[in-house]
Amino acid sequence: MKGLKYLITITKREYSEDYIAFFRNHGVKTVLSQLCNGTATESTLSLLGLEKTEKVMFNTIIPEDEVAPLIKGFLTEMDISSAGNGIAVFLPIDSIGGASSLKTFIGEKTIEKKENDMNLNESKNVLIITIVNKGNTDLVMNAARGAGAGGGTVVRGKGTGAELAKFFGVSISEEKEMIYIVSRRDARDGIMKAIMENAGAHTDAHGVIFSLPIDTVVGLKLFENVD
């Protein structure tokens, strides 16, 4: 699907309303927000339960011509490049389920289909997603940090598997954690291998891991310096 991007924005939960207003001002039609947590960085603070980790994740679909204004907005209005303020990643989209879905995402706008879409292998950054059993985020992050990853974001989820365990009327699922890590392409293999080794399918964490190509990333100071 050319001409559309999937935008994931992660920021501190207290900025939620500012970001929702920001998206509205920029004409973003549908914003799906989801509560998540940052991974602990300072071990003492985190042990004392004092570290601020509550974050929010916004999932949006935007037309490609909105990417540049949004990036500018993130940088100037939301000051996203300051450390700890948040991160926004733009991911390619494969297809859309019909015209009404498209209308929900971008309204009456028509999208330009540019043919010069970048080759996936050219993307400089990747989004590594790890799914592990609940309570193993620290394990994953320690492995990832050892291999050069910055921070991560955790979303709590439920694993339903192929067959649902039932107890009378209650269906019982496994509690899972999804960890999002943004990394440079050249650091990807190291980080993924470290996670696979320490929290992979052969361990109690039962980690499964994959990565997605990122078109553009803003925020997260680490990347600004590298480019």
Partner: peptide
């Protein structure tokens, strides 16, 4: 332009 959210306090703790 909309006023900037207050990002001045880079407080890492929830105290």
């Amino acid at each position: 332009m909309r006023k900037r959210p207050k990002f001045l306090t880079q407080d890492k703790t929830i105290i």
